[in-house]
Simulated assay, not measured.
Amino acid sequence: MADERDRIGVSYDVKPHAYDPDAHPELFDGVPARRVLAFVIDLVILAVPLILVWLFFLAIGIVTLGLGFSLFGLMPVITLIWAAYYYGTTLGGPRSATIGMRALDIEMRTWYGAPSYFVLAIVHAGLFWVSTSVLTPLILLVCFFNKRGRLLHDFLVGTVVINNPDRAGAPRPPEPGPGTV
């Protein structure tokens, strides 16, 4: 059987999960809350250029006495292209993090530890938007039922969001002992 696998170029090696929340809890400490804040930052970064394009189309529509208002039909396509570009270049870039994620010291990795890449980043973001649209934002509660804080779309594409090495390697504050305020 091994000879046949080698001949067709298929490998059945299963990679182990690179991030163990029991052995390295510092990788997952506070990640869900910082993911929410990173999302808000990224949403603003995505929205500002789209608002500027919308205002430009409005001005063109006024100047052309209404003929330019047909440009608003391009907004869904422009929005999709801009979002795919943003997520693909930031989340799929060398730091595997969007600008909001970088600001909050978190990054996305594959479940076996590899950095993200362009197509994975676009699929991950697309599944996020589809899952929260179709299944309501309540689907985000999934992160509270697993030790790694993974969301539905993380499970589907095989990713995990962790603290970056700088944050995870930082010393943890001492736990308050008995008799301390």
Rank of each mutant, 00 (worst) to 15 (best):
I122L: 11
T136I: 05
E107A: 09
M108H: 07
T89L: 14
S133F: 15
R102N: 09
S133E: 12
H124T: 14
R102W: 04
V130W: 04
A121Y: 05
D154P: 01
M101R: 09
I162V: 15
A121W: 00
T98N: 03
K147G: 14
I99Q: 00
I99A: 04
M108T: 15
L156N: 01
S96C: 03
T136W: 09
Y117H: 15
L120R: 14
I122Q: 10
L104E: 00
L104H: 00
V142C: 09
G92I: 11
T98W: 04
Y117T: 15
T89Q: 15
P115E: 00
R109M: 13
R109C: 04
L141A: 09
F128P: 02
T136R: 03
V161K: 03
M101K: 12
T159L: 02
T132F: 00
I162W: 02
E107F: 06
T89A: 14
L151T: 14
Y117D: 15
S133Q: 11
T132V: 12
I139C: 05
R150Y: 12
G92W: 08
A97L: 04
D154S: 06
S131Q: 07
P165R: 12
R148Q: 08
D154W: 03
E107P: 09
L138F: 08
P94W: 15
A125V: 12
